[in-house]
Amino acid sequence: MSDVIKTDAVIIGAGPVGMFAVFELGLLDIKAHLIDILPKIGGQCAELYPEKPIYDIPGYPIVTGQGLVDALEKQIHPFDPTFHLNEMVESLEVLGTPEHPLFRIATDAGTTFEAKVVLIAAGGGSFQPKRPPTPGVEAYEGKSVFYSVRKMEHFRGRRVLIAGGGDSALDWVLNLHPVASRVTLVHRRDEFRAAPHSVNAMRTLVAENKMDLAIAQLTGLKGNDGQLSAVSVRGADQVNFDIECDDLLAFYGLTMKLGPVANWGLNLHENLVPVDTARFETSTPGIFAVGDIITYPGKLKLILSGFHEAALAAQRAHHYVYPDKKLLFQYTTSSTNLQRKLGVS
């Protein structure tokens, strides 16, 4: 395990609201590390709708999801946040007292933090691979059904069925075909979203009988004790058949799941985190929550609401990070102190 990273604040979720929280905390001299399960910053804006215009960001008559993320990245740059991407927070432990909170945060990549405050800005939860629509798939997960490749060696000499039509599916078809005893690609239509050169390479392998391609949809799994023996599919002609295999690698995109947030001892209401609207603090002192993941009377799931919530949470966070300092309310337009922090004075 790596050394513990000691910091003022850990922000869970690097979407627009988590990013803006860096700014609001930074103005109050609170240093932040951001953690996100995605390999990039921006959350849903970057993952779901990077090219879609947003019309209700104050001051921007129109901005794309990616455009907003890029602007926020620039805006928070003076505060030099550290991003930990491709990592999911697994545990959040209370070390301190309600008056002097301290938390230990650990990710699935083995990174551990000690922070005085935590801001949960996890939106709809973590983006996780979508399960294939086959009943009982849970029993096979991690044994013979996978949604990513951690070790290619696992697949050596095995019959691997890969499902999907995007870059992940095609890349693994090409990477695993020399390793596996036989690779079969299953996709619902004979068109692929993946990069054309990967599709062409796959078609060449099929033509040379070095792998198989089935135009079909998964309907069921067959096997014992988590070990697959075959996958049932329905072809484009509506005929059902089985494909024998040892492993299934399924690439059906991402979906949002609340995930580990549910295990952190916070009060939850219908998978949302209730907060008070003066401090945006959860039921655990020192743990704040902002953005789409929270609920309170009148809550709107708007980016602009999340910005407001982050500003108020930062005010209260200051109380924990600097218990002996009085917080003076200042404007970025007039305060030379704030302007110095922003690097503009």
Binding site: K130, P133, G165, G166, H187, R188, G253
Partner: peptide, 11 residues
């Protein structure tokens, strides 16, 4: 939309 339907079940 066809690309997104790849992620749906029982298309």
């Amino acid at each position: 939309e066809e690309d997104m339907l790849d992620f749906a079940a029982d298309v």
